[in-house]
Amino acid sequence: MKHLIATLTVTLGLAGAALAADPIEGTWQTEPDDGAYAHVAMAPCGAALCGTITSTFNANGAYQSPNLGKTLVIDMVAQGGGAYEGKVWRPSNDKIYLGKMDLNGDTLRLRGCVAGGLICSKQTWTRVK
């Protein structure tokens, strides 16, 4: 009986953790930037979400970018309604911007902004299946 209760407790705990996963967790494909694109793994980082570059591609296919393993999406916090705020790093100019994201199904719109959000660069990412 104790074994059954322990098994049920573990099973329910794992199911609860799976249900608590944020909808942007997973792998996303960026738009091409300076002729290359990446796969970014979105996962929890403390109380926020971060995105790490896991693969990079150019016209010749996969390649070993010096940016592999670097954090592209930094400390994004859910604001409700599929909106997130934090920071984004742009590898092509090595700058960090005020970041915003909006989730819509398997599409993630990112904006990196300066001047309090008045001037923004945008990308739309798609979920990798």
Rank of each mutant, 00 (worst) to 15 (best):
K2W: 07
K2Q: 15
H3G: 02
L4Y: 15
A6V: 15
A6G: 00
T7P: 00
T7S: 11
L8E: 05
L12S: 13
L14W: 13
L19Y: 15
L19P: 02
A20N: 08
A21N: 02
D22L: 07
E25K: 02
E25H: 01
T27R: 13
T27E: 13
W28N: 09
T30E: 04
P32T: 09
A36E: 10
Y37H: 14
H39V: 06
H39K: 10
A41D: 14
A43Y: 06
A43N: 09
C45L: 11
L49T: 00
C50K: 01
G51V: 01
I53G: 04
T54F: 08
A59N: 12
A59C: 04
N60Y: 05
G61N: 03
G61I: 01
A62W: 00
Y63T: 05
Y63H: 09
P66I: 05
N67W: 12
I74P: 08
D75Q: 11
D75G: 09
M76L: 14
V77P: 01
V77C: 03
G81C: 07
G81W: 04
G81S: 06
A83N: 14
G86K: 03
V88S: 02
S92M: 07
I96N: 08
Y97E: 05
M101W: 05
D102F: 03
N104P: 01
N104R: 10
L108Y: 05
R109H: 12
R111W: 07
G112P: 10
C113G: 05
A115Y: 03
G117Y: 11
L118G: 05
S121H: 13
K122M: 15
Q123D: 13
W125R: 03
T126D: 02
V128M: 04
K129R: 13
K129D: 15
